[in-house]
Design a protein around this nucleic acid. Sequence first.
DNA 1: CAGTGGTCTAGACCACATG
DNA 2: ATGTGGTCTAGACCACTGT
Lengths: 245, 245
Amino acid sequence: MNRLAVHDERLPLYQRLRDDLLRRIADGEWGPGDAIPTEAELNQGYGMATGTVRKAIDMLVAEGVLTRSQGKGTYVRRPDFTSSLFRFFRFKTKSGEAVQPTGRVLGRSVRKPPVEVRQALGLDESEPEAIFLSRLRLIDDQPVLAEDIWLPRARFEPLVELKLKDFGDLLYPLYESVCKQLVASARERLTVEVAGKALVERLGIEAGSPVIAVQRVAFNFAGAPIEWRCTRGSAAGFQYEVDIR
Amino acid sequence: MNRLAVHDERLPLYQRLRDDLLRRIADGEWGPGDAIPTEAELNQGYGMATGTVRKAIDMLVAEGVLTRSQGKGTYVRRPDFTSSLFRFFRFKTKSGEAVQPTGRVLGRSVRKPPVEVRQALGLDESEPEAIFLSRLRLIDDQPVLAEDIWLPRARFEPLVELKLKDFGDLLYPLYESVCKQLVASARERLTVEVAGKALVERLGIEAGSPVIAVQRVAFNFAGAPIEWRCTRGSAAGFQYEVDIR
DNA sequence: CAGTGGTCTAGACCACATG
DNA sequence: ATGTGGTCTAGACCACTGT
C-alpha cells in the first residue's frame, strides 16, 4: 500500500497523486524510458478508483512528463527538443535535405557569470563561479549558429577537466552520462538583434543583418534550473508558426 | 432525446459527441457568450454517462471553444486574441504604461489578390476579386504597425461601401456586427524582414533595420478561412517566450 | 434554496501488444 | 493467453453560484 507524501489536504486526490508521481520521478525512482506501475497497481497501491488514477496520469501526459502506449504501459518520457525554437531555422545541406547541425565546443572557462545568468540559474554567494562554454553548430562544416552556455559548477564539475574534443555533437546526453544531470523541460525567449562584430567573425554573416537570438534556461524534473544558453543565427529563412484561439 | 449526426461509428463516443457539439456551435445554435445545455441535460438528451459527456466537453475546453464556470454553466468562448504574437511587441505610451494600439483604415480597394492569399482563403475561379484594406496601428498617434488585409468579397460585401472612418479601432467586432462573420481561431506565422522603402514611409523607421512580419489566417467555427492579414512592425523590443518539454 | 460544474467510486468491457 | 491502456457506465457526494 503506497501512501501520498505530505500534501495539502484541500487539493483534489488526482492532483495529489500527480504531485506524488512527479516527486517519485524527480527522486529518480523511474528514469526516462522506464515504465511506471500499471494503472491496476496504482489503483490498488494508492487505494483509488481507476478514473482518479487516470486523471492524474492524464495531467502528466499533458505536461509532457509521461507517454502512454496502449497494450504496453506508461513511460517516463525522454524529452527531445524538436519543439525548440531552433527547429524553425530551416536548415538544409548543400544538396537541399533538411538536417540537424553538428556541434563543436571551441572554448571553456570557469569564471563568475553575469548577473542575468546568476539569477536565471539561482546561484548565490556560496557559488560564485560557473562553467562557460563557447560552441558552434555547423552544417557541411559551415558555422550556422553560435552558442554561449553557462553551467552551475556544483552539478557539472566533471566537465571542467574533459577534453574539448570529447564533448561530442550533443550536450544533453553528455550531461546525463558524465554528470547525472537530466534535462526535463526548458523555457526559451526569442529576440531579434543586429549582427555585431563578434557574430560576423563567428558565423561569417554580414554586419548589420538581422539575427535571431534564442535564450534558453533548461530545468530538471524537480524544476531546478541547470543550464543557461543563448544561441544566435541569421534571421534569413527563420519562420515560426503558432495556432491561437 | 438528441441524436448524433452522421459520424464514423469507429470513433469513440466522446469524440463523436465533441464533433456534434462543435457542429451545433458552427451552425450558430449557440453563439459566443451563450450557455450550452447542462451536463445533466446532455447526459439524458444523448443517453450517455456523465463521464463521457465530461470528456467531450473537456476536449472543447482544451481547444479553447468552451469555458466552464463552476456553479454557473458551460459557455461558448468569445475568442480574444491576447495570445496573438502581437502581444510580444511590448508597446508602451510615452508615459511608460502598457497599451493596445488603436487602428485606422487608410485605404480600401476591390481587386484580385495574389496567389498566396487566394490559396490561404480558398478562393476559386468563381470568386476572382477580394476586398483589400490598408491599415495602421498607432500609439499616441504614432504609427507602430502596418497591416495589409484581404477579405473574401462574398462574406464581407457590406464593407465595400462602408465609410473608412466608420471602421473603428477593432475589426473583429465590426466583422461580427456588420457581416455576421465570427472569428473562432487563427494561425500566425512569424518571419524577420529588413525594412524597405514602403515600410520606412508608413512607420517612420530606419531603412535596413529588422522588422517582424506576422502573417495571420483567421478561421470561423466551421474551420473556414475568412481573413488574411500581414502585420509588420519594428523588431526592436520584440520578445517571444515559450515553454518546451 | 435549487441548480450548476467538480470530484470520485467500482466496476465492465474493448483494443492493442507481446509471448 | 495474458496483461496493458482505452472507453464507458451509473451513479454519489462536494463546492460554488445566484435567487
